[in-house]
């Protein structure tokens, strides 16, 4: 069959570009870092202010609002008509995952900001240039007695934000590579792993925590567990597509074997994002060498891998339409 007349240019446009991939990454980091910070706070928090656990909580509560705000900015800027974004706020369509996402973000973002103020309240009070915010900080302080409730709400909202980005894509049956029930779980898992990575990275670099062999070992084992969850999940995702039959199979095959995009997946997502940290962790644990450098390398590699996964999924879905 050879084409004689007809333009296909308008079907080949990438409508959701790198900006959306970065948004998905940032939203994932935000949700992941706050989930990890809360888990650490609930399970590991000791009353010492210089432990790595304390640094991870501080890092999570700092990264979460910054990354979600940056992500939201990107999201609005990527609209064809950014100034009309207010329609998202005054209209609601419960059937649209995007609309649900707006709802989740409207709940999540303020709670994150309040939680951040609660955690850094003493630091904020120190700075005089923040004094105009005095009454607001007083109000936040008065919320201290509800801290635990706020944390539970925050956890629920973060889980919603971390998952909805997956449903946002999987809801579209027009796009075979996105229309998989496993995608939201893949996204949530990888966003939690990016949360661990970013909390360790920011925690070690900016909150000068004391770190000992014990906590390094714990973090490395944590890394190992997350990678060992993510690898099989990605496997299940693609095996599901390959067994999907018809154009789903052929599109998945093409996405895994053709061109630079396949390279992004195999080299970036699998190689740098998963196998490199896996190898480092296993080597470190086997030879009982606990260096901070290992953790920093791992965290950076994991973050890069998570970003590339979002990039790969966004582009592969739109290129291999069937």
């Amino acid at each position: 069959m050879s084409p004689m007349w007809g333009s296909t240019a308008q079907y080949e446009v990438i409508h959701w570009s790198w900006a959306i991939a970065v948004y998905l990454f940032l939203a994932g980091i935000s949700a992941g870092s706050i989930i990890v910070a809360l888990l650490v706070k609930w399970n590991r928090h000791e009353r010492s202010n210089s432990s790595i656990w304390d640094a991870m909580i501080k890092s999570g509560t700092l990264v979460a609002p910054v990354s979600i705000l940056a992500g939201l900015f990107l999201l609005v800027a990527d609209l064809g008509r950014p100034l009309s974004f207010y329609w998202l706020l005054i209209r609601f369509n419960p059937l649209s995952v995007m609309s649900l996402g707006v709802l989740f973000l409207l709940i999540y973002t303020p709670i994150v900001l309040v939680f951040t103020l609660l955690v850094f309240e003493r630091t904020i009070v120190k700075y005089t240039w923040l004094s105009p915010l005095g009454s607001f900080i007083e109000w936040v302080k008065s919320l201290h007695s509800y801290a635990k409730t706020i944390e539970y709400f925050l956890m629920a909202a973060a889980l919603c934000v971390g998952t909805y980005t997956g449903f946002l894509l999987s809801a579209l049956y027009a796009i075979p590579l996105w229309n998989s029930p496993v995608l939201p779980i893949v996204f949530l898992t990888s966003s939690i792993s990016s949360g661990i990575a970013v909390n360790i990275l920011i925690g070690l670099v900016f909150f000068k925590s004391t770190i000992n062999t014990e906590s390094i070992k714990y973090l490395l084992v944590l890394d190992l567990r997350v990678i060992m969850t993510e690898l099989p999940l990605l496997g299940i995702f693609f095996v599901g597509l390959l067994y999907g039959g018809g154009e789903v199979s052929s599109m998945a095959k093409a996405a895994l074997s053709h061109g630079g995009l396949a390279l992004v997946f195999w080299l970036g997502v699998i190689g740098i994002g998963l196998l490199l940290p896996l190898a480092t962790v296993i080597l470190a644990l086997r030879s009982h060498v606990y260096r901070v450098g290992y953790i920093l390398t791992n965290a950076t590699a994991v973050l890069l891998g998570v970003l590339l996964l979002r990039y790969y999924i966004i582009y592969a879905g739109q290129i291999y339409l069937g």
Partner: peptide, 17 residues
């Protein structure tokens, strides 16, 4: 037209492109 924010979600959702 006035309510469309050009988020492009519908373009991606359409199986007929």
């Amino acid at each position: 037209e006035s309510q469309c924010i050009t988020c492009k979600y519908c373009i991606l959702a359409c199986p007929y492109h």
